Amino acid sequence: MIQNTVPGATRTQAQRTAATRAKLLDAAVDSLVEQGYSGISTQGIAKRAGVSRGAQLHHFPTKESLVVAAVEHLVDKRLMEILESQPDPEYGFEALFDAFTGPLFDAALELWVAARTDPALHAAMIQLERKVSDALRTGCLEIMGDRVSPDIIDLGIELARGFAVSALMRTPESDREFRERLLPVWKALVSK
């Protein structure tokens, strides 16, 4: 199918739909990171995205569906970036730890905390977390090959997540020192 890329040309319905969804997903992530889950509303996200409330409701009828889709979108995007960069297999553990930093992690953490007491969000997050874990496992296996077992990778995912949560209570400098000190220890244990 030839896509309409001529300036001023009319976009197809599929292109308009994709553009609207992308605006909403980006606005949802930005809002989630800046304001936290309890501070955002679908109306505020629609306004930030520059789309009508009706368009927002058409694509994402609930707050939960919008923010979960936004984080899922970032997970897919981040996994593709990692795999396309073709990191050195020796960098595999660092790549895993890097997956738990930045806006994606901040947004996901906001949802984890909110999901603890919000049954609808909790139900939506179960699928997302399964997808996140599968994506991380796939990415790590792709990067590290058969040098480590899937169980070691699963343990690494849990360890990296725990490091990232505890990093919230450290300064960037102390976190860097902590990571530089403990990551080699973990790598050495896994290599035995």
Rank of each mutant, 00 (worst) to 15 (best):
T17A: 14
T17Y: 03
A18F: 02
T20W: 02
T20G: 10
T20S: 14
R21M: 01
A22E: 11
K23V: 04
L24R: 10
L24A: 05
D26Y: 07
A27I: 05
A27K: 05
D30Y: 00
L32W: 02
V33P: 09
Y37K: 08
G39V: 09
T42E: 06
G44Y: 02
G44N: 07
I45V: 13
A46L: 01
A46R: 04
K47N: 06
K47A: 14
R48L: 13
R48M: 06
R48F: 00
R48H: 08
A49C: 06
A49W: 02
G50N: 04
G50T: 01
V51Q: 01
V51Y: 02
R53A: 10
Q56S: 12
L57P: 07
F60V: 08
F60R: 13
P61C: 01
E64V: 14
S65I: 08
V67E: 01
V67Y: 01
A69E: 15
A70W: 00
V71P: 12
E72Y: 11
H73D: 13
L74I: 00
V75D: 13
K77D: 12
K77M: 14
L79C: 07
S85M: 02
S85A: 08
P87Y: 07
P87K: 05
D88N: 15
D88Y: 09
P89Q: 05
P89F: 03
Y91C: 11
G92M: 01
F93C: 12
F93Y: 11
E94I: 14
A95W: 05
D98I: 09
G102I: 06
L104G: 11
L104W: 13
F105L: 09
F105V: 00
D106S: 11
A108C: 05
E110T: 06
